[in-house]
């Protein structure tokens, strides 16, 4: 700021510019609102005036059914929330270990490295639903001592294994994306490899991959519904039970709303983090 910043009065030219910009902003807002109303209106009219709309409305959007099912579905959705909250912590821990094993140049880790590579290759290539079925029915079938029987725990293990592979790859990419000069300056100060990784490289890597990582978590939150395949009563299962009792699909829509609402905070957080990262990158140049 200049020293007479307090006494500054915008020039006539600047006043004119500001006025023009305000006008333009208002005009753009109007155009956006008008086009939204038109497009949504046309969509609604198209759907509502469709020949089968009455049937669809009865089957999918029945207010009475919605009221009846919202309680049981909400109750069951708690299981989904528990699943993804615990799974997210476990996934991060597993993924971090796998990613570090894969990047660390330690010869003694070789067997683990091979294991980690096979793990990510196999689990990323297997549909999550298959992992859930294999873990959910396969693990107990082994009849090994200490294998959990709870469907909740089995579902948790399956989701962790499946998503751990994705998140490990995201973290590994993040670690590799930190510029080698950061390693060099850490090591040149006498920091060990492990300390440099922990205090210099990982914090930067995690910051950089936070948006894609959260994106995987959004996906995980939806996929907790897949655990219904091994008979765990969660939101989808609860909705299914009511649906089959009444031959009405409204409970499914109710369940969908729960999943959507649960993912929105994460989606906005992801947007905010990406935006902040972009701003920081342009500012740091």
């Amino acid at each position: 700021m200049t020293d007479n910043a307090g006494a500054w009065v915008p020039s006539a030219r600047q006043v004119e510019r500001d006025r023009y910009r305000r006008r333009r902003t208002r005009r753009r807002g109007l155009v956006a609102a008008a086009s939204t109303v038109v497009v949504l209106g046309v969509l609604v009219i198209a759907v509502v005036s469709a020949p089968g709309w009455d049937r669809v409305q009865q089957t999918y959007f029945d207010p009475a059914m919605a009221r009846e099912s919202v309680g049981p579905v909400a109750e069951a959705f708690v299981t989904n929330v528990e699943l993804f909250l615990i799974a997210e912590v476990m996934i991060l821990a597993l993924a971090l270990v796998v990613a570090v094993i894969r990047v660390a140049p330690v010869p003694a880790l070789m067997p683990l490295k091979i294991l980690a590579t096979v793990y990510t290759d196999v689990l990323r290539g297997t549909p999550t639903i298959l992992v859930i079925l294999l873990v959910g029915f396969g693990l107990p079938a082994l009849q090994l001592q200490g294998v959990p029987e709870s469907r909740f725990v089995l579902g948790l293990i399956a989701l962790t294994l499946s998503y751990g592979a994705y998140v490990a790859e995201v973290l590994r990419a993040g670690i590799l994306s930190v510029h080698p000069t950061q390693w060099a300056s850490g090591r040149s100060l006498g920091l060990s490899y492990a300390t440099t990784l922990r205090l210099v490289v990982l914090p930067q890597a995690v910051r950089r991959v936070a948006p894609p990582l959260l994106n995987d978590f959004v996906s995980l939150q939806k996929d907790t519904a897949l655990v219904s395949a091994i008979g765990l009563v969660e939101a989808l299962r609860a909705a299914q039970v009511i649906t089959q009792r009444n031959f009405n699909f409204t409970p499914y829509v109710v369940a969908a709303v729960f999943f959507i609402v649960a993912t929105i905070p994460l989606a906005r957080l992801t947007d905010w983090l990406s935006l902040r990262a972009a701003r920081r990158d342009s500012g740091a140049a």
Binding site: S188, L189, V200
Partner: peptide, 25 residues
């Protein structure tokens, strides 16, 4: 060693940049 491109740790404050190695090493 001091590098041409500084190579400071971008996620740490200036003081943390300076104090990290004495503390950890």
């Amino acid at each position: 060693i001091v590098f041409q491109a500084y190579n400071l740790f971008p996620h740490l404050s200036v003081l943390d940049n300076v104090a990290l190695a004495p503390r950890k090493v």
